[in-house]
């Protein structure tokens, strides 16, 4: 299972390394969404050079930046999952993975792993962007890192399952958001809460959310490992 997972992970990352779709298309999208958030929430987020401390007068960035990061990442997830499905459909080759003889659980772990790697890169971009644009100050690295890692794994697992479920369907682009977003709603909620609590310094209250994220990640990774075989078959 793990040998097959590494093989698929390597293949998907090699494809990204050559095609650079996440780098050239999803990363600029993520930055654009950040800029648009600044327009949409200007009273909260934008520090005006002429008016001192506009930001501190209103809601502190610590309450807004986590929501911005995780909502943007959710949109990016949909794009990355869609791309992950579409590379298997190139040249009408929807059957390639099924015919490969690879362990379905391995395929699931490999494809989810590749999505995790790409999401982590985008998270880095989002965090750096928030620090640069919105003066976000990070605290409690342990809480932030564990919440982020677990949330990313959970989102990637759900995305990979639904990606396979909607592969080969003409309505995939519209179907994916409708399916994925309600399911990962608890992840978005938990990750945002953990981040908010970390940024405002109430670290202790953040850990229950990490527990929820652990349960979510474990449940959906197990589900994918068990069910991906059934997901892959069309007949």
């Amino acid at each position: 299972m793990f040998r097959d997972a590494l093989l698929v992970l390597g293949k998907d990352l090699r494809i990204e390394a050559r095609a650079k779709v996440t780098l050239r298309q999803v990363a600029p999208f993520v930055v654009t969404v950040m800029v648009l958030f600044a327009f949409g929430l200007d009273r909260v987020l934008v520090r005006d050079a002429n008016v001192a401390d506009t930001v501190t007068d209103s809601v502190p960035a610590a309450y807004v930046v986590p929501g911005l990061i995780w909502l943007t990442l959710l949109f990016a997830l949909l794009l990355v999952v869609s791309r992950s499905v579409s590379i298997e459909e190139e040249d009408g080759a929807g059957d390639a993975l099924r015919l490969s003889g690879l362990d379905p659980a391995g395929i699931f772990l490999g494809k989810a792993g590749a999505i995790v790697v790409q999401l982590v890169a985008l998270e880095l971009l989002l965090v750096l962007g928030s620090m640069l644009f919105f003066q976000a100050r990070l605290h409690a690295p342990l809480l932030l890192l564990s919440a982020t890692a677990l949330a990313t794994v959970g989102m990637a697992a759900v995305g990979t399952c639904y990606g396979a479920l909607s592969s080969g369907l003409r309505s995939r682009e519209t179907l994916l958001p409708v399916l994925v977003m309600p399911v990962v709603a608890p992840v978005v909620l938990a990750a945002v809460q953990a981040w908010q609590l970390a940024l405002v310094g109430e670290v202790g209250d953040g850990w229950p959310w990490v527990r929820l994220l652990i349960v979510f990640a474990v449940v959906y990774v197990s589900f994918g490992v068990l069910a991906y075989g059934a997901l892959l078959e069309e007949s």
Partner: peptide, 27 residues
């Protein structure tokens, strides 16, 4: 197959949704 798997993914999400939303309001 799609219905069955989709329904299962949704069903195991129900307790997770329930607890996350409950904590969200009580905390």
């Amino acid at each position: 197959r799609r219905t069955a798997i989709g329904a299962l993914i949704a069903f195991i999400d129900v307790p997770l949704v329930h607890f996350s939303v409950k904590w969200w309001k009580t905390l």
